[in-house]
Amino acid sequence: MIDVKNLTKTYGSLRAVNNISFSVDEGEIVGFLGPNGAGKTSTIRILTCYHPATSGQATVGGYDVFTQSMQIRRMMGYLPEATPLYPEMRVREYLQFRGKLHGLDRSARLSAISRVTDRCWLGDFINRPIGQLSKGMKQRVGLADAMLCDPKVLVLDEPTIGLDPTQIRETRNLIKQLGEHHTILFSSHILSEVEQTCSKIILIAKGRVVAQGTPAELREKVSADSKIFVEVKGPAKEIQAVIDAIEGTRAVELDGAAEGEWNRFVITGTGQRDIREPVAKVIQDKGWGLRELRREVASLEDFFVKIIAEQEN
């Protein structure tokens, strides 16, 4: 549905997007993830035909963004980052106006407006001037506008930014629901959000795609060792030596100060091996007290942070 090849965008000497390639299949929900200033908005603006690429190619639904932008604009719904709206218009007037721009006739407009106001819970606010709405409500109006012409592709730039936690959850669910009928590309700098909603993640930093794949695929790439947290009552030195002797441990370190007789340790295992059982066993054999034993697999979050940090250096 969306095909991007070697896309580059420079502003003067600043290279905002650097030779990016990726593709989005029909019906996918793709999360465009990256820290602020990674080039997400620049890429999205090229795909929505707002500004041209410096070099490279991008097509949406088989149409070229530069030469066939009208066709793309007809089949795409776009929510820009700051949700720009006309404050003096009422919600209904605004949706009417946008419907006309998309060439919907009177009856199509009415049914489209009632569809999107239902979907985005705008019913109570339909006759309010946009300028009086809260940030979250404006976001919904923008989303309603993006969905108005029942587009094949929805592009949402930071759709949850500035929303409160309830609204974030509502928006996420809405995006998931919309994913059943639309191809969605949305950008975010919050990993958990993308992880929960997307079938595919494209991670970008400093204008480059640094990783892409399903959340599961990305998790597999996380090569960091698993960690085990354990809290034991007993002599610290001896405990350390005993645990270190277990096969599959790489390092055992004291974690923070002791709480009376209780000592906390962090055990680094080799790879993804789970050594909780042997650890529990030796502690029991020695007759020491045990009150915590917890394993932590390296998360996508660590991966994300690590990869971004690598790019920055």
């Binding site: 604009r73 720009p84 404050p87």
Partner: peptide, 14 residues
């Protein structure tokens, strides 16, 4: 100034 140009020019309008 308000950025509405972006929504306007990404709609199918010449």
């Amino acid at each position: 100034r308000t950025g509405t140009i972006e929504t306007l020019m990404t709609a199918p309008v010449g």
